[in-house]
């Protein structure tokens, strides 16, 4: 690292901008901004051209759906950014900021998707990406259904698509498919040959609505189940339930309120993720901050983020 003094580049600023120092002298990884993992084919081509010209023999697909160009010489930064800019591909971030949101494919072509996670990820990326938290990184992820491929509860704020089913008895032909399909045991066929719904067992997957051949099961409510306080890394936490059926169009507003609480409550705690702040402050503190703005969605009570034992260390 003897060369560092000879350059005028501030490595910390570079890191914040998505340029990550590599082992080799003068070389950096450039992390690209790919919200929701969706990449148009022309952009992919452009990235391939830039990687071929300035990068190493391969690119790396990051854990959060971005493409990382490797072995970029810092002298080429301006050229790389300019070249990528032609195809409107921007560079991502690192550090104590709101990161690029992740998302599953969503509902446009995936038959499991209940909500438009791609739209939500793009909106969060546009409005909140790069916002400094003052404390630590802040990750947001969107899953379109309770299969939860994106592992939403391992994000600082994780969203999971949800549907509340309602039955129109007149349209039911008593085929029993909904009861058979409900893996949660929330539907049983009653004596009158019609389904009986046990609301407390429902996880909002919408399988009954999808399987119903006559559309007797309908969408009563749709939105996101929200879990807060998750993270992975050295000391993993699983986020816990703070709200249900948050409307898709209020996602950014919801995250903003959580962020404001985090900024305030983590003050003086150093580099600490929101999950640990919730454990310290108690989940009621965040619930009561959210409730006035989202009274119909915030749950009555919840538990602190759940510690996952790694069984190594103290």
């Amino acid at each position: 690292m003897a060369d560092e003094n000879k350059t005028s580049i501030d490595l910390n600023n570079l890191k914040a901008g998505g340029f990550i120092k590599e082992r080799g002298r003068d070389l950096f990884t450039v992390r690209l901004r790919v919200p929701g993992g969706r990449m148009t084919v022309p952009r992919l081509k452009k990235i391939a051209e830039v990687a071929e010209r300035f990068g190493g023999e391969f690119v790396h697909l990051s854990m959060r759906q971005s493409i990382e160009l490797v072995n970029i010489n810092f002298r080429d930064f301006d050229a790389v950014v300019a070249e990528l800019g032609d195809g409107e591909q921007r560079v991502a971030s690192c550090g104590a900021r709101v990161r690029v949101p992740t998302a599953c494919g969503g509902c446009e072509y995936n038959p499991n998707g209940l909500v438009d996670t791609q739209k939500a990820a793009l909106e969060v990326d546009e409005k909140l990406f790069g916002t400094p938290t003052g404390h630590h990184k802040f990750k947001v992820g969107f899953a379109g259904c309770p299969f939860d491929c994106p592992k939403s509860a391992t994000n600082d704020v994780g969203f999971q698509g949800a549907i509340w089913p309602e039955l129109s008895k007149e349209e039911c032909i008593s085929c029993g498919l909904c009861a058979k399909s409900c893996t949660e045991g929330a539907i049983a066929m009653g004596d009158d040959g019609k389904p009986v719904f046990s609301a407390d067992k429902c996880i909002y997957c919408g399988d009954c609505i999808k399987v119903c051949p006559t559309e007797a099961w309908k969408t009563g409510k749709i939105g996101y189940t929200v879990r807060i306080g998750g993270k992975w890394g050295r000391h993993p936490l699983v986020g816990t339930l703070f709200a249900t059926f948050v409307p898709e169009e209020r996602v950014v507003e919801f995250i903003s309120v959580v962020l404001a609480w985090y900024k305030e409550k983590a003050d003086g705690s150093g580099r600490v993720r929101i999950g640990d702040i919730i454990i310290k402050e108690g989940p009621d503190s965040l619930l009561s901050r959210l409730r006035p703005r989202f009274p119909e969605y915030v749950v009555e009570k919840t538990i602190a983020p759940q510690v996952i034992s790694t069984q190594v260390g103290a």
Binding site: I173, C175, G176, L177, K180, S181, K210, V211, P213, T214
Partner: peptide, 27 residues
């Protein structure tokens, strides 16, 4: 039985009935 009725309905056909009979379904 979970997929075929839904897919045929998605194609625009009219579902008249679905009944269980001896371990299979009649659509």
């Amino acid at each position: 039985v979970k997929n075929v009725p839904r897919s045929l309905k998605g194609e625009g056909h009219k579902l008249i009935g679905l009944k269980e009979a001896d371990g299979h379904y009649v659509l």
